[in-house]
Simulated scan of single mutants.
Amino acid sequence: MPSRTSPPSCTLLSVGQAFVGTQNVDHSGAMKEERWTVHVRIQGCDLRHGTLCGSMEALNVPAAESSVVTFWEGEIIDNINHTFFTEDWANPDTDLKHWSRFPSFAPLREAVNRDGGKGIDLARHSHVYMRWKEKFFVNVGPDCGLTIAGFYYLCFSRVDGTIRGFYYDPNSSPYQQLELRATTEGRNGHSFGCYEFR
């Protein structure tokens, strides 16, 4: 079995980094698609233990009177601390269906299908795979019109700093797509809403 190391540090996947983009929600049957503006800020990142956390702000959500801010915790798929199989939140079939929606995952699929991809060294891969689970609402109550019962499958490109993801919750619209790009916000004098987590 090849030796495995944690993914090398990346300035675009570090504390303070901001991302901006959209989440598309297709309400099948309602012939209606919602597109929310989303801001993400990484608050913590520990590559050695394969964890990260941050805040996510969703704007222009029809059911909410204001923007909705959540705090999330994430797992970095490194085959040391976390594998492609979720275990707690989804089954292996659901995992494979979601990971397979990322083109960069195609060369890894067979190995992951066989044994979870435990033998794959992801340290030098062009993409970093993650799961983000929203833990609580920061600025609104749970009756804000959004749910945080599910979690995100995510693929971060080391090349251009983009993140593409899919939200999974068996009780919500399937394959809600999240698309984010890294910004220089907060790193050159711009500001981002600051929230204190207790």
Rank of each mutant, 00 (worst) to 15 (best):
N139K: 05
P174W: 06
R101A: 13
C155D: 11
W132M: 10
F166V: 02
V138F: 08
L122Q: 07
N139H: 05
K135L: 13
Y175C: 12
V159D: 14
T183S: 10
L122P: 05
R181P: 02
Y175F: 15
P170K: 13
T184W: 12
G141P: 02
W132P: 00
F137K: 02
R124E: 14
G161V: 04
A123Y: 08
P142A: 12
Q177V: 10
T147E: 07
W99H: 04
Q176M: 15
D169P: 04
S172F: 10
S104Q: 12
R114D: 12
T94C: 12
L108K: 02
Y129I: 06
A182Y: 07
F137E: 02
R164C: 13
H127G: 01
V140P: 01
K97I: 10
G150F: 01
V138P: 06
K97D: 13
L96K: 07
G161A: 06
P174E: 08
T184I: 10
L108M: 11
G141Q: 06
G161M: 08
T94F: 09
F85Y: 15
W99R: 03
H125C: 07
K135D: 09
E110T: 10
L178K: 07
S173N: 14
S104R: 11
F137M: 03
Y168F: 15
Q177K: 14
K97F: 09
A106R: 11
F85P: 04
T83Q: 13
F156H: 05
T147Q: 08
V128S: 11
F102M: 01
H98K: 07
R109G: 03
P107Y: 05
W132Q: 07
Q177W: 01
Y168N: 03
S172D: 15
V138M: 07
T83L: 11
F136Q: 10
Y167P: 04
F136I: 07
S173Q: 15
H82G: 05
L178C: 05
L96G: 00
E185M: 14
I163E: 01
S126C: 10
